[in-house]
Design a binder for these strands. Structure first.
Lengths: 167, 167
DNA sequence: AGAACAGGTCAACATGGCTGTCCCGACCGC
DNA sequence: GCGGTCGGGACAGCCATGTTGACCTGTTCT
């Protein structure tokens, strides 16, 4: 791939948008776009002494109040221990509270406290600013394409969970 | 109203695609899409005992053979020390080689060895598979929108560096 | 009653960021 | 040609966040 004289792989009928340059462009934009979006909240997080891992938990709890630890674990795709640390810190700081489920008392239903909700909202505002600016500069038509490609990157089974977030 | 204190979001005329649900959808798809794409290479990386940090360096060196350490640093947006560790390991393993610049002999020009290029190509293949499947399922029209939104997330000055990768 | 399950916890470890400090050799402007 | 700046490297140490495996408690289900 580095040398222009290398034997060309000969992909005859592949459409232009599937050639290597287009794939590389997608990989790079995804990397830089994701980086810049996540950086948008670092300052707000640092002011509270929290990290990105805390934000991810806050975000999904805000999104699905009352979800169980298992559900959160499935969304984040990390281990119980990693999540445990984060959740302990968030509850100690009074940002998250957990109550036993009434249907199944083994479960802990997670929700944000008022303070947690306020923090999540403030952080979301930073994300909103950046992403809505991007939506606007790209135009409404582009947004659908943006979603469609990203949905294609998510395996079908997980796609259901993601879609269910917008309950 | 003399006191405009509470910054109530109240965005009356904002188009549908800029409302909170659409922003949340974008945030979530970006998170899950990015996660799944990067996971595509973890197996190949683990087989070589390398991590994602190594891959990012390999990737950009493959993309711009002969780039300097400073340029790579600017792309990755990490510290000299963090990159130093990665680069040392990659050169020790014979995947990357560095030569002094001829215009400025302080510089180290980075390039992949044959072995490094082979590894990068193999890892890229995994990315290509996932992303081209997503491109295909979304359709050619969607890809342009995908790029446009992501470009909007990248600050203007950095956008130039990113675009220059496809030299 | 006993198995399976939700959740928590401990110890130990890996990765990949970070800071601050210091150093060398090369380049450039006066 | 000398002093300042620059490209790059290296030290020590810290922190956040991920991992594993083992084990415990209480609850639910059969």
């Amino acid at each position: 791939m580095a040398v222009p004289t290398a034997p060309e792989p000969f992909r005859p009928a592949s459409p232009l948008f599937l050639r290597e340059p287009e794939i590389r462009k997608g990989v790079e934009l995804l990397y830089f776009g994701y980086s810049h979006l996540t950086r948008a909240i670092d300052e707000g997080l640092a002011a509270k002494g929290l990290g990105r891992a805390h934000h991810r938990a806050l975000y999904f709890i805000a999104r699905q109040p009352g979800l169980t630890v298992s559900q959160l674990l499935a969304l984040l795709a990390i281990t119980k221990q990693s999540l445990g640390r984060v959740l302990t810190e968030l509850t100690e700081r009074g940002l998250v509270e957990m109550r036993p489920g009434d249907r199944d008392r083994r479960q802990r239903l997670l929700r944000l406290t008022a303070e947690g909700a306020a923090l999540e909202a403030a952080l979301f505002e930073a994300l909103r600013e950046r992403l809505s600016a991007a939506y606007q500069s790209a135009g409404q038509g582009a947004v659908g394409g943006f979603w469609a490609v990203l949905e294609g990157l998510v395996p079908a089974d997980e796609r259901a969970k993601v879609a269910a977030l917008g309950r």
